[in-house]
Design a protein around this nucleic acid. Structure first.
Lengths: 195, 195
DNA sequence: TTCGGAAAAATGAATGGTCATTCAGTATTT
DNA sequence: AAATACTGAATGACCATTCATTTTTCCGAA
């Protein structure tokens, strides 16, 4: 029968890490603090993670997984490229805006070092950009989007806008909802893409 | 009479910091290494900087200073809002693309922690965004840009695109010139803004 | 022009605090 | 009673920062 902590311990550690790291930053966060919040011993962390940095990697995986999975799902409920783009934009801002601590991790703490970012960007960020890029391709094939912009470029540009909105939201202490920006972002981006 | 190192020692320390931090990241870079590269003793660093973090702040100031100063200059040589925007875009990408080590600092290492970024963004980044925003305002007043986008939003969106191009360039190890993207960026952004 | 010594600048070895990580031992599950 | 999971005190490496000492600069007096 489901022991209460079974399998959930790793998740609990990750959840604790989000809170602690969001509050004090990765480098000020000690493994001991994460352990304490998770209600486990310091050493237990190392049964689940090779080292402290791997906790960050796991947080990234978990977050990107959601983006990609939900992104793919949403695209199936939209036909036209502009509509798909709207969906992606809304999803992106909704997911980031859902949880401020998590957003701090994604927008700030995961971008620590060149070494670290290099690894991240190759992996799932590339996949995410691909998804956006393919929507652009569709839009071009359907004759809705201009064809003088390379899809790869367009994808990065769109991501750049979304990322900036997200970072700005995290840094500003206002109490707005991030996804309220989805409308304007879509209008700006679509105007830039349309024929 | 001009002592040879007068005033130049602080600059030398900053230059060394750029190289070292770009190579190994801020947290892996020891004060001792920076000192060694600059050809001074460890303790000398503390005659010029309160602590290690202040070196990062100084690097940021130095970089942003260039952006803002040159930005203002360029705007005087351009009349129309679209032309001004082109100038800013080209300048931004040129300045970042000029020096890879410096770019690593700007795009990655300066974004270490929430605490750190919070301080940065209020200060000069805000000033930079203002400059862009004012060009948007002009474009709207001149009847060249649509008026349904808030200038503050537009400025962030434009910055987001530029920032993403810059980060992408830093992370990719390709040997392209960053400013070669200026044309497409301008076309995309202007299409998004124009009536 | 030179000298002396005070002020300023620079040095770098020593200090102290901080954690990530380990692992011998304990508890729990099968 | 073996295997598995967990514990947390101890270890050891690391490095920012300090400060007693040394070196260099400055400048007035001779």
């Amino acid at each position: 029968m489901a022991r209460p902590s079974e399998g959930g311990k790793k998740e609990r550690i990750l959840d604790s890490a989000v809170v602690e790291i969001a509050q004090r930053g990765y480098h000020q966060t000690t493994v001991a603090r994460i352990a304490k919040r998770a209600g486990v011993a310091d050493g237990t962390i190392y049964l689940y993670f090779k080292n402290k940095e791997e906790i960050l990697f796991s947080l990234f995986d978990r977050a990107m997984g959601r983006f990609i999975e939900e992104g793919r799902t949403r695209l199936q409920n939209a036909a036209s490229a502009p509509e798909k783009l709207r969906q992606i934009i809304e999803l992106h801002l909704t997911l980031v805006g859902e949880d401020r601590d998590q957003a701090i991790i994604i927008q700030v703490e995961l971008r620590h070092s060149l070494h670290f970012m290099g690894q991240l960007s190759r992996a799932q960020v590339g996949e995410y950009l691909d998804i956006i890029g393919q929507v652009v391709v569709q839009g071009q094939e359907d004759g809705e989007f201009r064809t003088d912009l390379a899809p790869v470029f367009a994808a990065k540009a769109i991501f750049g806008v979304l990322d900036e909105m997200a970072t700005d939201w995290v840094l500003s202490h206002r109490n707005t909802r991030l996804e309220s920006k989805a409308g304007v972002v879509a209008e700006f981006v679509l105007a830039g893409l349309k024929k």
